[in-house]
Design a binder for these strands. Structure first.
Ligand code: NAD
Ligand code: NAD
Lengths: 205, 205
DNA sequence: GCGTTGTTGTGCAAATTGGCACAAACAAGA
DNA sequence: TCTTGTTTGTGCCAATTTGCACAACAACGC
């Protein structure tokens, strides 16, 4: 159960398991077997059992896993049993969609602030938020103690924005811009460029 | 060079390499070493060399890889040396952003049609496209021979939409809805749920 | 021409990851 | 209480994936 001993591949599957469990719960299931989960997920049942067993013995032989309890446990391990404040930078087409997206809060995230550089955008509404001036980012984010950032600016601005976020104390960045970011070792970056998965698929077409 | 012999992990890194090469080319570089690429990508130099060597000997000892030629080769292998038509389903906030996004075409993709179920949406403009009625999807997609689909509907509709796409002959689906899709073996699905990478990061915070 | 520097492609070893198969545990029904 | 049917957790092995290290090669300066 030592955090540093759990391989990243395993951690990276946990959110998938959690999402499936939440769906199962909505359907009213109280108990679910690794077999059943496997079919809903495309991950082998043995894999699921082995992954989950690294965090404790949640399953009951003959019955499967208690859906609600397991989901709670996963949320605790992933630390999404609370809601994280997130800062959004770049409120263009994509940033707007993100600001208005309702799917974050009940899964552990809330966009708490949004910043842009364009004077036309600053002061306007995006979702429930007022777009703020990028020049005030460092202070605002630092004061609020925000640890997670989302970048939805053009690629040309992304590294500069990342630097600002890091300076402001952000430790995790979700980057929508199609460019690799260079950040200190203690900051994590995940990428969401839709062209990458598209090109992965065309290889096989 | 036999397609089926190249491991998927390797294929999945190719689009990353291609993106980095395109950036390097824009900066005017004509030659780039695995070392240099490694720093821009966060993938080890040995890994890059080994991956690329599976597709042929593009590098020159002492100099590195010729940027333009290697990018061309990768585009050929990924089959993005042409532009694929893509069908978009669900033109809400996210679908709108996707329809207006300019970043697809020069990387091998063009949203050729967009469909929605909402009568309010049908007939309206989204980017350069007119939103069409979902009930006409099968015929339109089949006739156009489109092989790639993007789903940006709510999760509740995603599986049904996927079924329609498969029926219409689509072989690759990019799914933005936060739900696992069940499709025939010859159809590929990639997922883009932003909460998944966010939760992957909070584990370590 | 020749040493120096830099870089690839690759054989091999190490590490990681995934899958099989089964004992142990539990539920339920007779 | 015993039997039957399920399903977990895990030891062990196979496969995949990564990293190391070096010979082979190319350019360059002198
Ligand atoms: N639109 C999409 O569907 C989509 C899809 C995938 C990826 N992306 C990527 O997401 C990013 C945003 O895309 P978009 O379509 O919303 O672009 P956009 O041009 O509509 O919006 C970009 C926003 O960033 C702001 N900005 C620019 N420089 C900034 C800076 N230094 N600091 C703060 N704000 C700054 C701009 O003022 C603008 O509001 C791009 O990198 C794009 O490649 C977009
Ligand atoms: N908005 C975001 O930033 C964002 C981010 C990540 C993921 N997502 C996911 O993307 C999807 C779309 O998000 P959104 O914010 O654009 O939602 P939205 O409600 O704004 O848009 C959904 C659209 O899908 C259409 N639709 C519904 N059922 C349909 C059907 N059966 N066939 C065709 N069209 C149908 C609706 O009419 C609507 O136009 C959701 O699954 C959401 O979870 C959105």
């Amino acid at each position: 159960m030592d955090k540093s001993k759990i391989p990243h591949v395993v951690v990276s599957r946990l959110p998938i398991y959690l999402r499936a469990l939440e769906h199962a719960q909505q359907e009213g299931l109280t108990c679910i077997s690794s077999q059943e989960l496997s079919e809903r997920l495309g991950v082998s049942a043995a894999q699921i059992r082995k992954d989950l067993s690294m965090f404790g013995e949640y399953g009951k032989q003959g019955r499967g896993y208690p859906v609600a309890a397991l989901a709670d446990a996963l949320r605790r391990h992933l630390q999404v049993d609370k809601v994280w404040d997130v800062v959004l930078v770049g409120v263009g087409d994509l940033g707007h969609a993100l600001a208005r997206y309702k799917g974050f809060t009940h899964r552990g995230f809330r966009i708490a602030m949004a910043f842009d550089r364009d004077p036309e955008k600053i002061g306007t509404q995006a979702g429930d938020l007022i777009v703020e001036d990028i020049r005030t980012l460092a202070r605002r984010v630092q004061e609020a103690g925000i640890k997670i950032g989302m970048i939805a600016t053009p690629a040309a601005a992304a590294q500069e924005v990342a630097n600002m976020l890091v300076f402001a104390g952000v430790k995790a960045i979700l980057n929508y811009a199609p460019i690799h970011l260079t950040v200190p070792d203690d900051v994590r970056v995940e990428y969401l460029d839709p062209v990458i998965p598209l090109q992965r698929m065309t290889y096989y077409l």
